[in-house]
């Protein structure tokens, strides 16, 4: 418990320190969005499902909401709720239909499919074409409000992740993640646990998506890009699977991308590619380190 309090205190301190400058406040929001995405991914991984298409869970509701915002705020809210429900159902069906390996492929291919096909969503509004590769606009709020909202959301979901990890449901998730057949044999309801992990993952990703929309005031099909899909995998790899280290590595990766992309646009993509290429080598180290960190945290 002490550890959780200390980790939360570190995150809150970062939130306070970074609120002092407008640029760092903007950067903090961006870092927190990606950290939430990583936390969302970790919820699913806890139950043994590695999603490589998390951009769908993250981007789909807010993409629909932004399309709906072209008509009215009410339509936007309704479409957001529909998007959340649909993305949850799709991921749940994927988890029920497939084994662990096929789930990785299916989520990745599906997110690329959505990325490739989403620019086809174009409609006429007030005599102008809207959508396509450019995307849709989204409302914004003041930076101060956004900073507080983001800091609060990140802290809330981090605490939920850690508290659930220590709860009965968390142990069940870990058991399912370790061995589905054995979990079933000891009476764990696999469907409920899978649904719970996807729901928690979805709630975290949907919140991150909304904050992303509010931060940029605009949503384009790039929200489904492969780089967003693989981000949580990379952050978790660097963070050795430990939630706190993964949140910090998400912060670090976003900061690094700002530095590298300002040196040369697209340079961070090369770093992502290199990490993915070397990921099998890093994998064993991550497994061992992650186990150790998890044990210490436990």
């Amino acid at each position: 418990m002490k550890r959780i309090v200390a980790e939360t205190a570190v995150m809150l301190s970062l939130a306070v320190i970074m609120s002092l400058s407008p640029y760092y406040s903007w950067l903090f929001v961006l870092m927190s969005i990606y950290s939430l995405l990583t936390l969302s991914w970790l919820f699913m991984r806890k139950a043994g499902r590695i999603s490589m298409g998390h951009s769908f869970l993250f981007g789909f509701p807010v993409f629909l909401a932004s399309a709906g915002y072209s008509f009215s705020s009410e339509v936007s809210i309704q479409l957001f709720i529909a998007g959340c429900a649909l993305s949850f159902v799709i991921f749940y069906i994927f988890a029920e239909m497939t084994g662990r390996t096929a789930f990785v492929f299916l989520t990745l291919v599906f997110s690329i499919f959505v990325w490739v096909s989403s620019p086809k969503l174009v409609f006429e509004k007030g005599g102008y074409l809207t959508g396509g590769e450019v995307g849709f606009s989204f409302p914004t709020i003041s930076q101060k409000e956004l900073h507080i909202l983001t800091g609060g959301t990140l802290t809330l979901f981090y605490l939920i992740y850690r508290i659930i990890g220590e709860s009965r449901a968390g142990y069940f998730m870990r058991a399912v993640g370790d061995d589905e057949t054995a979990s079933k044999a000891v009476g764990i309801d696999l469907r409920k646990i899978k649904a719970l992990s996807i729901l928690l993952s979805g709630m975290t990703a949907w919140s991150a998506g909304i904050i992303y929309g509010l931060e940029f005031g605009h949503i384009s099909p790039e929200i489904f890009s492969v780089e967003i899909s693989v981000f949580p995998f990379i952050a978790s790899l660097i963070g050795a699977g430990n939630p706190f280290a993964s949140v910090l590595s998400s912060f670090g990766l976003v900061y690094l991308s700002k530095i590298l992309n300002s040196m040369y646009p697209g340079l961070m993509g090369i770093v992502y590619a290199a990490i993915l290429i070397l990921s099998p080598k890093i994998g064993w180290w991550v497994y061992v380190k992650g186990k150790r960190l998890d044990e210490k945290a436990g």
């Binding site: 590695i50 490589m52 390996t101 990785v104 492929f105 990745l108 492969v226 780089e227 693989v230 995998f233 040369y264 646009p265 697209g266 340079l267 993509g269 090369i270 992502y272 590619a273 290199a274 990490i275 993915l276 290429i277 070397l278 990921s279 099998p280 080598k281 994998g283």
Partner: peptide, 28 residues
């Protein structure tokens, strides 16, 4: 370096991103 189908697939994804980003950087 790969021991499983997932590792090999992730490596090939990295290789794909490397090509794309390389192309984007070189011919921007």
């Amino acid at each position: 370096i790969c021991r499983s189908v997932i590792e090999a697939t992730v490596l090939s994804l990295g290789a794909g991103i490397l090509i794309e980003r390389g192309l984007e950087i070189v011919h921007r």
